[in-house]
């Protein structure tokens, strides 16, 4: 049901408190290479408990066709500006998928799961992705739950990612079922918020 038949301007936009919650030409993303990008000055962000929030919305024919969930920015890793990246064809409504930012590209990221008794281990930054080669062997058909966080004590709690939402608190985990026997690897792409696991 369209709200009050309101028409929005077409394009890919970053929205938040800074844009009054609506798509604004000032925060319209531009296509650069593979990504829509926008450089957001940190001065426009309102931090509460060191966290500010944004969303990305894709508008076509005046209607929002894809909208992410709210994505956190942790003040401690935000510089004078933060660059937001969006890949509309990877985006899914009400998830963070397809959208990332330069704060997410800044290390460290830690990963834990039932494979290591939920002890957070630091991931390695390799070719634009954070990787954890767990060194654990898994058998085909084995299911593993895991997620990533910013600190070894899980803080800030607003930035625990399960591949769908950055607010993945207790019980919200990514799930992977091994398709073959081998060593289990976890990989996070901070530009698209893609969290995946595979067997080497």
């Amino acid at each position: 049901m369209t709200l009050l038949n309101i028409k929005l301007p077409d394009g890919v936009y970053v929205i938040g408190d800074f844009s009054n919650g609506v798509p604004s030409s000032e925060y319209k993303m531009a296509l650069q290479g593979d990504f829509y990008t926008l450089e957001l000055p940190s001065s426009v962000l309102s931090f509460e408990n060191d966290i500010a929030w944004y969303q990305v919305v894709v508008v076509e024919n005046g209607k929002p066709v894809k909208t992410t969930s709210e994505i956190p920015l942790w003040k401690q890793l935000v510089g004078a500006t933060v660059t937001i990246y969006a890949t509309p064809n990877l985006m899914e409504n009400d998830t963070a998928k397809g959208v990332g930012d330069s704060e997410k590209e800044t290390p460290p990221w830690y990963c834990a799961g039932d494979f290591n008794n939920w002890t957070l281990e630091e991931m390695t930054y390799q070719d634009g992705k954070f990787v954890l080669n767990t060194g654990r062997t898994v058998s085909s058909g084995e299911t593993i739950q895991y997620k990533i966080a910013r600190n070894t004590d899980w803080t800030p709690y607003e930035e625990q990612f399960d591949g769908t939402s950055y607010e993945a608190g207790y019980g919200k985990n990514a799930t992977f079922t091994a398709d073959k026997d081998g060593t289990f690897v976890i990989e996070f792409d901070p530009k698209t918020s893609t969290l995946q696991a595979y067997v080497e």
Binding site: L3, P64, T67
Partner: peptide, 8 residues
């Protein structure tokens, strides 16, 4: 819930 961007 019906907002500018989502229905739930």
């Amino acid at each position: 819930l019906n907002t500018l961007y989502t229905e739930a």
